[in-house]
C-alpha cells in the first residue's frame, strides 16, 4: 500500500512543479506584452508615426520616429531579398543535389548552426571592420550587409528543416519522367513554399529586432535616408537610445517605438504559426 501512495504523491508533486513552471512562462509572456502595450498605448499618437522629430533624437519637441520605421523597413526589406537570393540555392543544393550522407552537407549545416549562434554584437563589430576596410562609413548599405549576413544562416537552417521533411520519392518520380534536376527544382519549390514562407517570417522577425549589429553599421539619424550611403535609423535603436532620456517626450517616443516593434514581431510570429498549421493540415 505504502509504495502506491508514494508513487501517487511524487507524481502529484512533479505535476505541480510542472504547472508552476508553465504558469511562470505564461506570466512572463503576459507581463512583457502588458508592460509594452500599456506604456506604448499611452504614448502612441498619429504624429509619432508620421512626423519626423523636430528637435533631434535626444531633445524633446514634436515628432516621432517615422525615420526609424522607414529605416528598419529599408534594411529588413533589402536584406530579406538578398538573403533569399543566397540561401534558396544553398538549400536546394543541400537537399536535392547532395546525398543525405554527404560530408559537405554535414559541414554546411554545422557552419550555419554555428553562425546562427554567433552573437549579433560580433557580427556588428566584424561588419564594421569590413566596412572600414572598404572605406564605407556608417550607412544604410552597411546595415543591409550586416543584417544579410546575420539572417542567411537562419534562412538556410529553417528552410532546410522544412525541406528535409519533403519526401524524396517525389524527386525520383520527377526524374523518372525525364526531368533534369533544374526542372525538378520547380516541383520542389511548390512543395516547400510554406516552409520558405515561415522561414522568411522568422528571419524578418529576427532581423527587425536586432539592435547590436546595426548600432555601428547603420548608425542613427533623425532623417529618412535618401541614398545607400547615408546612415539610417532603426526601430530597436530608436527604443534603446531614447528610453534612458530624462525628457518625458523622448521616453514616450521610445515606448511608442517599442509598441510598434512588438506589434510587428507579434504579427510575424502569429502568421508564421498560422502558415505552419495550414501547411501540416494540408499534408495530412
Amino acid at each position: 500500500m505504502d509504495i502506491k501512495r508514494k508513487k501517487q504523491v511524487s507524481e502529484w508533486a512533479v505535476k505541480t512543479v510542472m504547472w508552476i513552471s508553465m504558469s511562470i512562462v505564461f506570466l512572463l509572456v503576459f507581463s512583457v506584452i502588458w508592460t509594452i502595450f500599456s506604456k506604448g498605448c499611452k504614448a502612441m499618437s498619429w504624429s509619432m508615426l508620421t512626423k519626423l522629430p523636430t528637435a533631434g533624437t535626444y531633445l524633446g519637441g514634436e515628432g516621432g520616429f517615422p525615420n526609424a520605421i522607414v529605416g528598419s523597413l529599408y534594411i529588413v526589406g533589402a536584406s530579406t531579398v538578398l538573403g533569399l537570393l543566397v540561401s534558396i540555392p544553398v538549400v536546394f543544393y543541400l537537399n536535392v543535389y547532395l546525398k543525405t550522407s554527404s560530408k559537405l552537407a554535414y559541414w554546411l549545416r554545422l557552419a550555419c548552426d554555428v553562425l546562427f549562434g554567433v552573437p549579433s554584437i560580433v557580427y556588428g563589430a566584424f561588419g564594421f571592420t569590413i566596412m572600414i576596410f572598404f572605406g564605407l562609413r556608417t550607412s544604410l548599405l552597411g546595415g543591409i550587409i550586416v543584417i544579410t549576413m546575420l539572417i542567411i544562416p537562419i534562412f538556410i537552417r529553417t528552410m532546410d528543416e522544412a525541406t528535409r521533411n519533403f519526401p524524396r520519392e517525389i524527386l525520383d518520380a520527377s526524374y523518372a519522367l525525364g526531368a533534369t534536376r533544374w526542372e525538378t527544382l520547380k516541383v520542389v519549390v511548390r512543395q516547400i513554399a510554406p516552409g520558405i514562407a515561415t522561414a522568411t517570417l522568422l528571419s524578418i522577425g529576427r532581423a527587425i529586432g536586432d539592435a547590436a549589429s546595426v548600432m555601428f553599421t547603420a548608425g542613427y539619424t533623425d532623417s529618412i535616408p535618401t541614398s545607400l550611403s547615408q546612415p539610417a535609423a532603426t526601430l530597436p535603436l530608436a527604443v534603446f537610445f531614447q528610453l534612458t532620456s530624462p525628457i518625458p517626450e523622448v521616453v514616450d517616443r521610445a515606448y511608442a517605438a517599442a509598441l510598434v516593434l512588438t506589434i510587428i514581431v507579434l504579427i510575424l510570429s502569429i502568421s508564421g504559426r498560422f502558415i505552419t498549421n495550414r501547411f501540416s493540415k494540408n499534408k495530412l
Binding site: 506584452i33 508592460t35 534603446f240 517599442a258
Partner: peptide, 24 residues
C-alpha cells in the same frame, strides 16, 4: 496554448526585453 506563448517569447526582440527589464 503553450506553443504560441513560447513563440512569442522567442520572437520578441532583445530590446523589448530590455524595456521590460527597465520598467519591471
Amino acid at each position: 496554448f503553450v506553443f504560441p506563448a513560447l513563440d512569442i517569447l522567442a520572437g520578441l526582440p532583445s530590446v523589448i526585453y530590455g524595456v521590460w527589464g527597465v520598467l519591471v
